[in-house]
């Protein structure tokens, strides 16, 4: 924490700054540029001011996609965080099973996202998939491409399958950093399993849990590839999340103005959450270490 004040450190940051500026600032400026202009084709643009923004903010389509996305993020957070904690708590602490568990659990994280979609597409199909076939054999009418509920259930299970491991690994890392002495003290005091969890493990996992929570929120908020491959946003528009809608508008219909305005609104929402994230992050464990809720 005793960092020296030295502006020459900027020299070391310049390469990163240039590189990220190239791939962040220039594209964002392009988007800003489009968001305030309209075109009749032929590279003729004219100023329309905030028209696109008012359109986007008032459009039903955007509200629906945003609502769906928030609902989706909420559901998967409610499932993945407790599940991740539960699994992390019951993981072995040492022995040969540790690396095996870690490698197996991390496996879904390293599968390309569209392959994740493909895997579940195959897995859920009634004619060739294990899940679909089993459901059919059990007499459950299951079809993720025509039934809205099934589509949602499949996407949620797919996301749980794909990302719970991240929560598990984060929580596990938090857990193994707890010194054995804490548990010994708890055993001597005759603490119940619940109080060990509540007063030792949970506070110690606080930092990683906040990170897990926010990472999962961000990533589920910008989910694109997996539902795109699995359902293509359907049936109807029932699984059209913000990113899917945005790409549809920008690439599919080439409505540059509205798409750009939507991008910026979308980006601002993310940025806002990110700011909260960063503030919370940098306060964890520094100025108020006693907070426990």
């Amino acid at each position: 924490m005793d960092k020296t004040y030295n502006n020459k450190a900027w020299l070391l940051v310049i390469p990163v700054f240039l590189l990220v500026a190239l791939s962040a600032i220039i594209p964002i400026m392009t988007v800003v540029n489009y968001s305030v202009q309209d075109t009749f084709g032929g590279n003729k643009f004219f100023w329309v001011g905030t028209e696109w923004f008012t359109d986007v903010l008032r459009s039903e389509r955007f509200h629906d996609a945003l609502g769906r996305n928030l609902l989706f993020s909420f559901i998967i957070l409610c499932i993945e965080i407790p599940l991740g904690i539960l699994i992390a708590l019951s993981m072995p602490k040492k022995g040969i099973w540790v690396p095996i568990c870690l490698v197996l659990m991390a496996l879904p994280l390293l599968i390309p996202w569209n392959v994740v979609g493909t895997i579940w597409q195959i897995f859920g199909r009634a004619d060739i998939g294990l899940l679909g076939h089993t459901m059919a054999a059990l007499g459950i009418d299951y079809n993720y491409s025509s039934n809205v509920f099934d589509a949602w259930a499949t996407i949620i299970i797919m996301d749980v399958w794909h990302w719970t491991s991240l929560v598990v690994l984060l929580c596990y890392a938090g857990l193994v950093s707890i010194p054995e002495a804490y548990y010994q003290a708890a055993r001597i005091d005759g603490a119940s399993k619940w109080s060990v969890f509540r007063y030792i493990q949970l506070p110690k996992m606080q930092g990683v849990l906040i990170i897990a929570f926010l990472l999962r929120f961000m990533d589920s908020f910008m989910i694109y590839t997996e539902p795109f491959v699995l359902t293509g946003g359907g049936p109807g528009n029932s699984t059209t999340f913000l990113s899917i809608d945005l790409v549809k508008q920008a690439i599919g219909q080439f409505d540059l103005g509205p798409a750009a305005a939507m991008s910026l609104v979308y980006q601002l929402i993310v940025l806002l959450v990110c700011y909260v994230f960063f503030t919370v992050m940098s306060n964890v464990g520094t100025d108020k270490p006693e907070v426990e809720e």
Partner: peptide, 17 residues
């Protein structure tokens, strides 16, 4: 913060630019 905010940027926003 600015660097990190890029980690959180939705890829869909950047596709076209």
């Amino acid at each position: 913060f600015w660097l990190l905010s890029n980690r959180m940027a939705p890829a869909a926003v950047f596709v076209l630019p």
